[in-house]
Design a protein around this nucleic acid. Sequence first.
DNA 1: TCTGGGGTCCTTTTCCTT
DNA 2: TCTGAAGGAAAAGGACCC
Length: 412
Amino acid sequence: MRRIAHLDMDAFYASVELLRYPQLKGMPVVIGGGRRQADDALLERHEGLALNQIPVADFPLLRDYTGRGVITTATYAARQFGVGSAMGLMKAAKLCPQAVLLPVDFAQYRHYSQRFKAIITGMAPLMENRGVDEVYIDFTDVPGGQRQGGRSLARLIQKTIFDDTGLTCSVGVAPNKLLAKMASEFNKPNGVAIVGESDLESMIWPLACRKINGIGPKADEKLKSHGIETIGQLAARELQWLMDTFGQRTGAWLHDAAWGRDDRPVVTESEPVSMSRETTFERDLHAVRDKAELGGIFTRLCEQVATDLQRKGYAGKTIGIKLRFDDFRSVTRDITIDCYTADAAEIRRLAGLCLKRAPLHKRLRLLGVRVGTLLSAEEAANLVPKMAPGPVEYASAASKTIAKDPLTLDLF
DNA sequence: TCTGGGGTCCTTTTCCTT
DNA sequence: TCTGAAGGAAAAGGACCC
């Protein structure tokens, strides 16, 4: 039978940080805010000491932080003060001012991510990436993958990862991805859980609907408004009622999920669909008063996306922007052209046309640039465009839209 | 003093063409 | 030339995930 594992690293970011700063073990630590300059600053003040010898008292504290940002991860000791992921740093500073604040060091997390994934593919080659700290693994045809329902292979992978990296993970094994994902949460940290088809009623149905991967806060609220709190209650609803209430597709999916049905394969490789860069400003910016600053940021974002595309060997033909206003509402605008591009100046020009179609009378807190409908640079180069694109056409297409909104500012 | 950044996927709306 | 229907593609928005 099909045996699918979901492997989830335990408190990944925090655990990686504790490898570097073991002296912080057991202390309230939050990770968030800007990029890492912490090591350099700390080392500069402690000549001759290694990172793991620096006194705890000398780490930067949350109470001293000023600026925007959210918590990416908090250690258990910090969570006891009520701080947690996605909380604003300023709010967290009120709750736990004495917490050590470490900046996000994505390069480091990626390094450990590659290491543990290499270990897994060495033991079970059918692995699907689900972000930096999670994977699905198809145990079905791996030698020993069926033993004890997958438990022995799961344990072996856990041990091999720990011996190499010092990091722990939790694994769930089940007949499909949906159940495996839920199972991996059962015995955290450093646990293994096996869920079979016959365990549906006892292990899955008592859980909250929110535990289903794909049911977020909105869907959960709607389910609750109909008196559906648990997966078992969801399973008890008629398929037709679910389709009438949530739409054909979503309704059918909810029904399948509640009954533990999921036949999605483990996908070992996939092509990216879009690449983007966005940034939240230190302070909200005004399109007129801060025009120069905004223009500089805008150009830089376009250059960063272009660099990302070129480095990874892709080009795209849908260029778009994203704006977030001071009231946190956001809008997007995009344009699709006939030929693929990864050129910074071209992206900048097209993104500029998109910007002209957006309302700019409110202050901005975020600006983003996205390139979608990607194709490998190689394939894109071999394509003959159906129609030679002319700048005049874009300009007229854009000005048609501008005319509809007198509040739109033509600034870029 | 709220609320990051980088994605995917789906639904709805809008626009264009026939 | 106007109107409306239909269908498809593109655009926009939003939910969700890590």
